[in-house]
Design a protein around this nucleic acid. Structure first.
Lengths: 199, 199
DNA sequence: TTTTTTGTTGATTGACGAGTCAATAAACTT
DNA sequence: AAGTTTATTGACTCGTCAATCAACAAAAAA
């Protein structure tokens, strides 16, 4: 009963299943069988479309980054002023869509993957660069010469908050994470310029 | 040529080899064979002493945490005043002994392990609690009621800086990491009390 | 000196996984 | 209608790995 044009559908299903499976297992030790089963097909078909498990992982990684990137861009488009831009990036980073157990677990494992697979490392580096530059747009008017350092610190803090989410129990609390990040920001801006207000 | 009293020696060698192997491989996908070989013995002997691979991993985790804990205590003993205590914790966290590729890689993978193995999760939770309480001792006189929040933020930042080290190339720069953390601290303390000086 | 305990390993077991292949079938092309 | 491309899977290959076992050796205890 081969309907044509299955490729994109199956690939999308596999990518989604890969993320879910990694997130649930909490490790990269998931079999192609498991992934394929969750996506409703045979392991052979998964290999047919992706060629290898590694390709599946990389596709999943690209997908998760694409989602994140889209959310950031969306939030950024609506943002008002420098402070609003920084807030937008934070809001997107800790939005329910991205800051959920499954996705966070997947991120952590992609970090591990990056240690071994150059392409994974490349993708993660892209994410870091993008995050940095997105932050910088808002930060430069606020922090001037120190914008770079603040962006680096904020980036590390965001990653750290993700990391810690992994160990927590109970539902993720993006609100709290944003608060911590904003506190950092407020602190970094205090005494820099005449700004004493909200950030 | 069985010399007696081999057990502690072999166990120590295995623990060290486990950390090195995980750090080098950048993942938990290391075989007992590899570990045993690096420790200079057969895989069968490794099983004889540890019973299972998982036990080896856990022992390695305990070891790395013990080393870190010892370094923190040592630095804390010499520390002067609240600010000195916080600095001591940071100095230990990013000391060359702990903040090196191999150890950082191992940490990251233990985080992954914690997603699956309850005992690993327990150990990591202990680390977090200890870090928090060590920070709090110094922080309370400095930040008062906000000490808890600052400790949490600083803890996340430290973890984040570790995480980012994983992706960097070139030798680790503990000095830079400490600077970022101290910047955070300075920011959090500014405007809190009349302190305008060094921290 | 027999027995027991400790150290040590090569060989084996049992299981599982990634990736390939051959075969089947439905669509689309010519 | 014949040929080609796409979809799909069960069975198979080939490899690996954790864990166990049987056996040997040497020290300590009896």
């Amino acid at each position: 009963m081969p309907k044509l044009g299955m490729e994109p559908i199956r690939k999308a299903a596999l990518v989604k299943a890969t993320i879910a499976e990694i997130g649930q297992a909490g490790s990269l030790d998931v079999t192609v069988r498991q992934i394929a089963k969750r996506a409703g097909m045979s392991a052979a078909l998964a290999h047919h479309y992706f060629g290898s498990k590694e390709e599946m992982f990389l596709a999943a990684m690209r997908h998760i980054m694409t989602l994140y990137g889209a959310e950031v861009r969306g939030a950024l488009a609506l943002a008002d002023g420098p402070e609003g831009r920084v807030r937008a990036v934070l809001a997107a980073s800790f939005s329910p869509a991205n800051f959920r157990r499954e996705a966070v677990g997947a991120w952590l494992n992609f970090w591990v993957l990056a240690q071994t697979v150059p392409e994974a490392k490349r993708l993660l580096a892209i994410y870091q660069r993008r995050l940095r530059s997105n932050l910088l747009v808002g930060l430069r008017p606020l922090a001037g010469a120190r914008a770079g350092e603040v962006a680096d610190g904020l980036g590390a803090l965001i990653d750290g908050l993700y990391l810690r989410e992994v160990l927590k129990s109970g539902p993720p609390d993006g609100r709290a994470a944003v608060t911590v990040a904003l506190d950092y920001l407020r602190g970094q801006l205090a005494g820099q310029n005449s700004d004493r207000g909200g950030v």
